[in-house]
Nucleic acid binder design. Sequence first.
DNA 1: TCCGTCTCGTAACAAGCGTTACGATAACAT
DNA 2: ATGTTATCGTAACGCTTGTTACGAGACGGA
Lengths: 196, 196
Amino acid sequence: MSRTADRAAQEAALSRAVWDVLGEQGLERLTVRAVAAAAGCTTGLVMHRFPNRQALLRHARHLLHEKTRARVEALESEAPSPRAALRSVLRQGLATDAETRHESVVWMGFLAAAVADDELVEMHRANNRAWRRRVERLVGAAAPEWPAERVSTVALGLIAMAEGAAAFAAADPEAYPPRAQERMLDEALTSYGLGV
Amino acid sequence: MSRTADRAAQEAALSRAVWDVLGEQGLERLTVRAVAAAAGCTTGLVMHRFPNRQALLRHARHLLHEKTRARVEALESEAPSPRAALRSVLRQGLATDAETRHESVVWMGFLAAAVADDELVEMHRANNRAWRRRVERLVGAAAPEWPAERVSTVALGLIAMAEGAAAFAAADPEAYPPRAQERMLDEALTSYGLGV
DNA sequence: TCCGTCTCGTAACAAGCGTTACGATAACAT
DNA sequence: ATGTTATCGTAACGCTTGTTACGAGACGGA
């Protein structure tokens, strides 16, 4: 890690190292030393950038959320129609390639870590509620005639399905190939009356 | 822990202690000492019952699977119809009370631990595939006229949805109360054409 | 060029970890 | 009642952990 990089870039690089270790070695081996090794520096730099391990994890969690939010907003703005936006946004939540599988493992690692960290669970709730509101808004735009309760219920069904499928696929990629996940999503959208 | 209890009972008690620690303190604090304390014994007994920590976790994971399997089979056999069986079996997978929320946290803890343990991930895959086959069979019985691919796709959508909803509700019970989860499940079943 | 400051690697610390060795005590056969 | 065996708690081991202290070296102003 170069000596002249600015703090924000270093913090981001360390956060990426956190994701790497969490995704490849798991929460139990997510140590400060392992993160430093993955980032190509020493524990000294890590502890100069963050007051403690907790802060490092929280920053990495925050940046992961920002990353997925940016991706989702880009997909949403590029979509040609509300229903296409809904499908596209849900689709990116699946685990259909190496990167998204990795993200899903990391996401679950943070969720498991949140059991022992009040601020992590608070971050999870805030992010998850924002995600839910976004999908509710997309469902509402895709089916303007629906009553609010149906919008909310269907949105919940869709985000839960995407999250569960990502977890399954991350843990057993052979059993849940991309096509099976996409068929699952399309079948659900069609059945709800939200097909394109 | 009494001195005359047989080995199987002790192993089960220690497994329950593993679930307790995993659900209340998280994977990072799931130490042999914490498990012993939760079981009301010392690390000596734990290490006399299991060759190492890994074996303890694997046994606890196995017993958790057996527990949910027994519950699911009882629900299935008691159901008055295939569609009622399907709904009942999926409903038990949600996190609608303190016990099932706890189970969901434990389940995710084991999944996070599986990243660093090949046998745990193998156990997860075997159990998950069996679970998927069971729900496929139930969907097939609930809609005998469906082609196999639709049965498989809808079954995947349903188990993914239940799993995701359980994860959400375990991490944020206030945002995902039991009624919201049940409405979500019923709306999905109805939309798929599997309503009772 | 020299000095102060800031960066970050090195090395150490106490605490906690999984695991092992050993001894005390209970249970049982004789 | 006594000797044997199995059970399990105690205490220690080596190791890894998060964290701290300190020093070497790069950078910038005078």
